[in-house]
Design a protein around this nucleic acid. Structure first.
Lengths: 178, 178
DNA sequence: CTTTAAGTATACAGAATGGTATACATTATA
DNA sequence: TATAATGTATACCATTCTGTATACTTAAAG
């Protein structure tokens, strides 16, 4: 049900009408509004669900992608490359959503902020394990590379930018763990 | 006239109705449609105009911001910090727009792609001047940091991330010009 | 002075928006 | 078997969307 509602990812939230969701999901409008009181609540539910799924998948792949802490940090960008290669990759849902909601106090924004904070926190843990002299700074830098690679892959439609990010990440990690 | 139409930047394109634009700009609907045949044409015109302005401003500030090529490369991130601090900063218009238009062949996407390509090209010129061993790679890496800082500043609402990006940039530049 | 261009004001058309209501089918529990 | 919950199908409402048309004002150019 919610699954079909990832139309949001492709077309954006404002551009996706309730009717389209109803039509494509096979669910009836009545049922939809029985579960979610409004479109905003539906959006929130979708974002929250995706938040959990995406972070889980991210951590799982990173964990498997490297033996050493340093290897896991670099695996972040291997994960990114695979992500960018998916044919339903339309950039980061949270970044795209933030672009549609500028109001500072909407709960939608909060979810997006929270997601990014948690991802950065996870990267920071890896930095600690890798023995970085200043884990927080390194984590910020690597998160920057990841965000940058994500939007660049989205715009330029070329997943290979992940390799560039990985190369830069390597340099920054080496410098921070010298 | 077009100036008032930068409602797009704040609220996104799909969320901004023609009526709102007409109302806030003082221009009449008739006149608007005399200049632009459709909303899409208006969007294109706005993006194109902003493309020119933004790139100009960017290059001007970078040029003034540093004496040496290396200094100008770093000035990119000083520019970014000032940009992030503006109270009408809602992230990069082109990134936000791409998030709303996934269709590969819309001219709107092309403008966004072109903008990013030109900015990267300019950074690459600076990298050449700075004597980088592989200017293209360095430019890609620095562009990544800039994009990352932009979306991070937008989401976290804290302009200081520009300093983080600058620090990382310094490390990457040093490595590439050793 | 008159004509022509371009503006304002406003009403309207047709479709799509978010959201509600009615009528009927299914199913699980009491 | 009766009841209550949950789903489907569909029609509908008020509003807003993009885009057009009509009528009146202005102002510059011939």
């Amino acid at each position: 049900m919610k699954t079909a509602l990832a139309l949001f990812a492709r077309n954006g939230i404002h551009a996706t009408g309730i009717d389209t969701i109803v039509e494509q999901s096979g669910v009836t409008k009545k049922t939809l509004y029985a579960h979610f009181r409004s479109k905003e609540e539906l959006v929130l539910a979708v974002l929250r669900q995706y938040d959990g799924l995406a972070r889980n998948e991210f951590m799982r792949r990173v964990e498997r992608g490297g033996e050493t802490p340093r290897g896991r940090l670099l695996a972040v960008f291997d994960f990114a490359e695979r992500w960018f290669q998916q044919n339903d990759f339309y950039g980061c849902l949270f970044i795209n959503t933030i672009g549609e909601y500028s109001s500072k106090d909407t709960p939608i924004r909060q979810i997006c902020q929270e997601y990014k904070k948690l991802v950065k926190g996870y990267i920071q843990e890896l930095c600690v394990e890798a023995g970085a002299s200043d884990p927080q700074s390194l984590a910020e830098e690597l998160a920057l590379l990841l965000e940058g690679a994500t939007v660049t892959a989205q715009i330029s439609q070329s997943p290979k930018i992940a390799k560039t990010a990985k190369r830069a990440a390597k340099a920054l990690i080496d410098k921070a763990t010298a």
